[in-house]
């Protein structure tokens, strides 16, 4: 069996958990956690894609042989940093809302009446 398949299944499952959390949770902190989980899923996917049978880390310090694909690693690093930036903003918005209204429950904060 292709050893990448369990990694892909994990990535898809983690992604689904993140989306599920986004849909059902109403607390801003829990939403932040769900966002973070969703972002990590794509990182797992990238790591799985970089896999090459028998490959080692792409650092050319003498040894030859197959190396893992370096591009997904570089993309993963960029995606991690962008995700961290998003998470920081989400948390700071949560802190701002909590300071102002004393709650982090979106349902209590968000005026659902569309026409207002």
């Amino acid at each position: 069996m292709n050893p990448q398949i369990p990694v892909f299944i994990t990535a898809a499952l983690v992604w689904a958990i993140g989306i599920y959390g986004l849909i059902i949770h109403r607390n801003m902190i829990q939403i932040c956690v769900s966002l973070s989980i969703m972002e990590s899923a794509v990182i797992i996917l990238l790591v799985g894609l970089a896999f090459v049978p028998g490959g080692s880390a792409p650092i050319l310090d003498g040894h030859t042989g197959p190396f893992a694909d370096p591009v997904p690693h570089a993309l993963a690093l960029t995606a991690i940093v962008i995700g961290a930036g998003f998470l920081a903003i989400a948390l700071s918005l949560t802190v701002a809302m909590y300071r102002k209204y004393g709650t982090a429950d979106v349902k209590k904060l968000f005026p659902w009446d569309e026409t207002q």
Binding site: P58, L60, A74, V81, G85, I89, S92
Partner: peptide, 29 residues
């Protein structure tokens, strides 16, 4: 000799500038 660093800082250095700007902007936000 680190290929990932070579991609990050040289071949695709423009992306790195972009992500550094994302961090910069999110600190400012």
């Amino acid at each position: 000799i680190n290929v990932v660093t070579a991609i990050l800082m040289d071949y695709r250095g423009f992306d790195t500038l972009g992500e550094a700007s994302v961090i910069f902007t999110s600190v400012a936000v």
